[in-house]
């Protein structure tokens, strides 16, 4: 833990990052950006985990972060593959157009 920077700061930063991510998911329609925002939210959580892990001197949190990063990587691979397939079919990655399951 870097001296002089309290845990509160990490929490605030993490919260800001998370909110940016969440608002991005809610507000944007471009799938790529939504995707990036989800990553942002994941990383906000990662940051929090790492901070508390250091604070409590407990490596469990950091182990979790590795898992999350691995899963996120897999998710990116699958997610982007889906998106590219969608783009091939719909010629767009606008989420508003992806409503074929509606009916």
């Amino acid at each position: 833990m870097i001296n002089g920077i309290s845990i509160n700061m990490y929490m605030v930063l993490s919260a800001i990052l998370f909110i940016i991510g969440a608002v991005g998911v809610m507000a944007r329609r471009n799938s790529i950006i939504i995707f990036m925002c989800i990553e942002l939210m994941l990383n906000a959580v990662n940051l929090l985990l790492v901070s508390f892990s250091t604070l409590h001197n407990d490596p469990k949190g950091q182990v979790f972060v590795f898992f999350i990063m691995a899963v996120a990587a897999a998710e990116v691979a699958v997610g982007l593959a889906i998106l590219s397939m969608v783009y091939r079919n719909v010629k767009s990655i606008d989420t508003n157009l992806m409503s074929n399951l509606k009916n």
């Binding site: 809610m26 507000a27 329609r29 939504i34 989420t95 508003n96 992806m98 409503s99 399951l101």
Partner: peptide, 9 residues
């Protein structure tokens, strides 16, 4: 259930 992902989120 209008199919808008943003709405759901």
């Amino acid at each position: 259930q209008n199919g808008n992902i943003g709405m759901y989120v």
